[in-house]
Design a protein around this nucleic acid. Structure first.
Length: 275
DNA sequence: CGAGGTACCTGACAGC
DNA sequence: TGCTGTCAGGTACCTC
């Protein structure tokens, strides 16, 4: 489901509502969703009674910083949702982990396809969460400069779409925002990374930042599953240029948007604007 | 390094 | 109505 803008939207809401709260108890309905520690009881005991000090984001990972130098890490994968509820709220069929707050609220981890994961790790050691430990740079951070992006692409013979989707290369882009960024930059998704011109790299760099910034501004893209912590939809689906627009007119040239399998994923692009 | 496949799950939708 | 195949915002793991 969620990519960087959706996760960022959720993180901002969680921070506002959860900072300073104490997690009193956790109910795990399906142990498969606990990625670490292996033993669910250890996960529950390690969290119970701790205070939520802050909520942060790294790539598509949600980091709930707890007292005692512990971090509750949550990844939503495809269909995960985090929903803030009042105590005693109805439990949805696909809610598999519930965090009960001391002060009357609940956080429901809902997961239709059960791909999402929760982890409890020491705040100074994220190694047990492999994907988190080896993430690439944050695309909206100051240290992701154009110069750095050029260096990252140097000598990479992979198809650009597959590189952009790779979290260890750059953190946070998923299928929607990758397609949108490549359209904005006018680059065909199947181009080889090391064959992009200097101008194209610069356009892509700007496009990535712009697409993510706008995605956050409009609080994410909801086309089937994504909702924020209050169950509300984002707005960016109304502003997509290519994603989910197969057969429709390109807003730039009037041609027809196509869809093809590239880098193993359904890929949307305008064959005229992205040669 | 890079490409392609499988697996993990449930549900929606198209086609017969 | 119901069966079958395909697809879905993600990632880990495997082989070549």
């Amino acid at each position: 489901m969620p990519e960087l803008p959706e996760v960022e939207t959720i993180v901002r809401e969680l921070r506002q509502h959860l900072a300073g709260e104490i997690i009193a108890d956790i109910v795990v309905e399906d142990e498969r969703l606990v990625g670490y520690p292996e033993e669910t009881g250890e996960f529950i005991r390690g969290i119970s009674g701790r205070e939520i000090e802050d909520v942060r984001r790294r790539g598509k990972y949600i980091l709930i910083m707890l007292s005692g130098e512990k971090t509750l890490v949550i990844h939503l994968r495809m269909t995960g949702k985090l929903l803030l509820k009042k105590a005693g709220a109805a439990i949805d069929k696909h809610t598999h982990v519930i965090f009960h707050l001391k002060d009357d609220g609940e956080l429901h981890f809902n997961n239709l396809r059960k791909f999402g994961r929760v982890y409890l790790v020491a705040s100074d050691d994220y190694a047990p969460v492999g994907g988190l430990a080896c993430l690439g740079p944050e695309p909206l951070s100051e240290d992701f400069t154009l110069e750095k992006f050029r260096e990252m692409l140097e000598g990479r013979r992979a198809v650009i779409k597959s590189l952009l989707l790779k979290q260890s290369f750059l953190a946070g882009l998923g299928n929607i925002y990758t397609d949108e960024a490549l359209f904005l930059a006018g680059i065909h998704p199947a181009r080889k990374a090391d064959q992009l011109t200097g101008g194209e790299i610069e356009k892509l760099y700007t496009a990535i930042k712009e697409v993510l910034t706008r995605g956050i501004k409009y609080r994410g893209t909801s086309f089937s599953d994504y909702v924020n912590t209050m169950g509300g939809e984002g707005d960016f689906q109304h502003r997509l240029q290519v994603y989910q627009r197969v057969g429709e007119e390109c807003f730039r040239c009037g041609g027809e948007i196509e869809k093809e399998k590239i880098a193993g994923r359904g890929t949307h692009f305008c064959p005229h604007c992205q040669e």
